[in-house]
Design a protein around this nucleic acid. Structure first.
Length: 430
RNA sequence: GUGAUUGUAGCUCAGUUGGUUAGAGCGCCAGGUUGUGGCCCUGGAGGCCGGGGGUUCGAGUCCCCUCAUUCACCCCA
């Protein structure tokens, strides 16, 4: 038991797992650009007000999950970003991106921080990849970000994911619905749990996805948001569904789907994985036309986007055995010295091989020859190159193929020629 | 923030109603093979039994506190 442990809710990613991350990130980068999105990187912390305004002061994220600190007694309060959208929108407004072009398509893979109690699929530092389509607001735009997200899942080989969609209408729709909801729940006030009562006042829509069975029973008879939508919102939603169907993307309409961040309007969606346990949301998003205004933009900046939890994505992939084919490859050749007197000769040879572009490794711990061979085996080197007194004297080296156990003697130039051959490199990708 | 769970070797875990020098498998190191890996055999290193206090002749084992872990609530990706 070491004295220092990783901070609660954080963890280390070691090489084997890092390879999985690199693989997934690679797919994200290539599909995002396939869809015309460019990468954006924003600061890890922002002024606290940004999140209070952007996400909503009554949300749990802002109310009790932020890592907030004061840089100095006079400084403004700062917060480690708990999500990306507010920061990306802030950057877009600050740079006045929309004056350069009417539409901007941005994506990111970033670390986020939320002060929650850790559990399966939930850490205090976690990462998301996501995309934001800024400048247009249309069913086609929402459908585009949804399609990108679903194609990432598909390309990674994920199966059994469930996409649920809903529409939240516009602000006026929600205001009318909100009143109707409060009216409906008023008689049940004494039956509701504390959390639900609080929601009813601050953010009545959230009561819809309460997990409390007693509350759900009452919710079943509640008025439907869908019935309070104006016609434009209904049309909008139907068009989004049309695009999904046209692209063969399976979905489920869930009128009780309410997202936890205040800035969503019209289409909202969420993807869940049955492999994940309690924290089963792997991704989600929607349209957020009102966010820019909330952040002080002088003009309307309609937008939509999504975010996917990287850890949850990786977890699901692991459960579905999607990393089985991912074979981290070792060096092509491992240089083995007969005795430590020849260590420097070995290092020189290794250097020359590396300069020649051949993946090479060598023991640095003055270990026995047997240990060196074991190491070569452990890291899956395909060849071992022996350096002994004979080799140093004659300049001819013994190269052993560790798979076939064949061994040949040749000059260093000859060795390089063999190791540079595609066949030698290909071996690793098996 | 609330509830439950688990802390014993680098890792995964045994450890009986409290009883003397705390074990296994894997991994690591060395030897068997004085210039050759994987398999096998032999040996070795490695433990404040999470930390503190208490009960007892005696605590890894019982009690209290504390720290950490994990899962769930909550919330969300």
């Amino acid at each position: 038991m070491s004295q220092y442990q990783a901070v609660k809710g954080t963890r280390d990613i070691f090489p084997e797992e890092a390879a999985q991350w690199k693989y997934v990130e690679g797919i994200v980068h290539s599909l995002a650009s396939l869809y015309g999105f460019s990468e954006i990187r924003t600061p890890v912390f922002e002024y606290t007000e940004l999140f209070q305004r952007g996400i909503g002061a009554t949300t749990d994220i802002v109310g009790k999950e932020m890592f907030t600190f004061q840089p100095d007694p006079k400084g403004r309060s700062l917060t480690l970003r708990p999500e990306m959208t507010a920061g990306v929108m802030r950057a877009a407004i600050q740079k006045n991106l929309l004056s350069l072009a009417p539409v901007h398509k941005l994506y990111y893979i970033s670390e986020l921080f939320r002060k929650e109690r850790p559990q399966a699929g939930r850490q205090r530092q976690f990462s998301q990849f996501g995309a934001e389509l800024i400048g247009v607001s249309s069913p086609a735009a929402v459908a585009e970000v949804m399609t990108l997200m679903m194609q990432v899942f598909e390309s990674l080989g994920l199966h059994g994911l469930k996409l649920r969609v809903n529409t939240l209408g516009d602000t006026a729709d929600r205001l009318r619905y909100r009143e109707a909801l409060q009216g409906y729940f008023a008689p049940y006030h004494s039956v509701l749990d504390e959390a639900s009562k609080e929601r009813l006042e601050k953010n009545p829509l959230r009561i819809l996805d309460s997990k409390n069975p007693a509350v759900q029973e009452i919710v079943a008879g509640a008025p439907k948001l869908y019935d309070y939508l104006h016609e434009v919102a209904v049309r909008d939603f139907e068009k989004v569904l049309f695009y999904l169907e046209e692209r063969g993307i399976a979905y489920e309409i869930d009128h009780r789907l309410v997202r936890g961040l205040d800035y969503y309007c019209y289409t909202a969606f969420e993807v869940t994985s049955s492999e994940l346990g309690a924290q089963d949301a792997i991704g989600g998003g929607g349209r957020y036309d009102g966010l820019a205004r909330e952040l002080g933009s002088s003009s309307e900046v309609p937008a939509s986007g999504f975010a996917v939890g990287m850890e949850r994505l990786l977890m699901t992939m692991e459960k579905q055995g999607l990393f089985a084919a991912l074979n981290p490859h070792g060096p092509v050749v491992y240089v083995v010295v007969q005795s430590q007197e020849l260590a420097d000769n070995g290092l020189q040879v290794a250097y020359r091989l590396r300069k020649a572009g051949i993946m090479t490794d060598i023991d640095l711990a003055a270990r026995s020859m047997k240990a060196q061979m074991r190491e070569a085996n452990r890291i899956r080197a395909s060849y071992a190159l022996f350096i002994g007194t004979t080799e140093v004297e004659t300049g001819l080296y013994s190269l052993k193929n560790l798979v076939t156990s064949e061994q040949t003697t040749l000059s260093l130039e000859g060795v390089m020629e063999i190791l540079r051959e595609p066949a030698a490199k290909e071996f690793y990708k098996l």
